[in-house]
């Protein structure tokens, strides 16, 4: 259900490539240890230095759009998802109609102060999980001229994980250094 499988990733590491641990990184067990260095093979365009960011994002968007079409109806009512719930634990049975959702606030951080901080925005836009609601966003100064982007997201509890979301966003590693969860609440 994710946008990209973990397998088949190649470490391009444009920022911190020369650390000499590429050999370790290729080790299968280590694949997930540092997702920001990994890019799904489905986006070969990202490996070509000359490709502009907008093109990359466009490519990524079309990829996620294709994925978004797979679930039958991403309706907000959650009625289509009753089947999913039947198998889940007893706590949720009683609440089968309004599906459990959580609100998360993501901190998306750039690499340096000179970076165009507006840039991570389209990345967050495009990182679409199944039935994810992307709320508003704001830029928050962190000191030393660095600004982080805060994005509000609403996720369904038994749909994609937040780590998947983090991974998707950190794939835009040209602009994104890391993603942290600033708040995580039940709705």
């Amino acid at each position: 259900m994710g946008c990209s499988g973990v397998t088949g990733r190649v470490p391009p590491c444009p920022h911190r490539g020369k650390t000499g641990d590429n050999a370790i990184r290729n080790d299968k067990n280590e694949e997930k240890t540092n997702p920001k260095h990994l890019i799904p093979a489905q986006h070969p365009g990202r490996l070509r230095g000359g490709t502009g960011l907008s093109a990359e994002i466009g490519e990524y968007l079309s990829h996620t759009e294709a994925l978004a079409k797979k679930p039958a109806t991403p309706s907000e009512d959650g009625e289509d998802d009753d089947i999913d719930l039947s198998g889940s634990n007893c706590e949720e049975e009683k609440e089968a109609v309004p599906e459990a959702k959580s609100s998360t606030l993501l901190d998306i951080k750039p690499w340096d102060s000179e970076m165009d901080v507006a840039q991570p925005e389209p990345c967050a836009h495009s990182a679409q999980l199944d039935e994810l609601v992307r709320g508003s966003s704001q830029l928050v100064p962190m000191g030393c001229g660095i600004q982080k982007l805060q994005v509000q997201c609403v996720v369904k509890d038994d749909k994609g994980g937040t780590d998947l979301l983090e991974e998707d966003i950190t794939e835009f590693e040209v602009h994104v250094q890391s993603v942290d969860i600033a708040a995580f609440n039940k709705i």
Partner: peptide
């Protein structure tokens, strides 16, 4: 924090 049932 109202602990969500979310697995993460």
């Amino acid at each position: 924090t109202d602990a969500p049932g979310h697995r993460d």
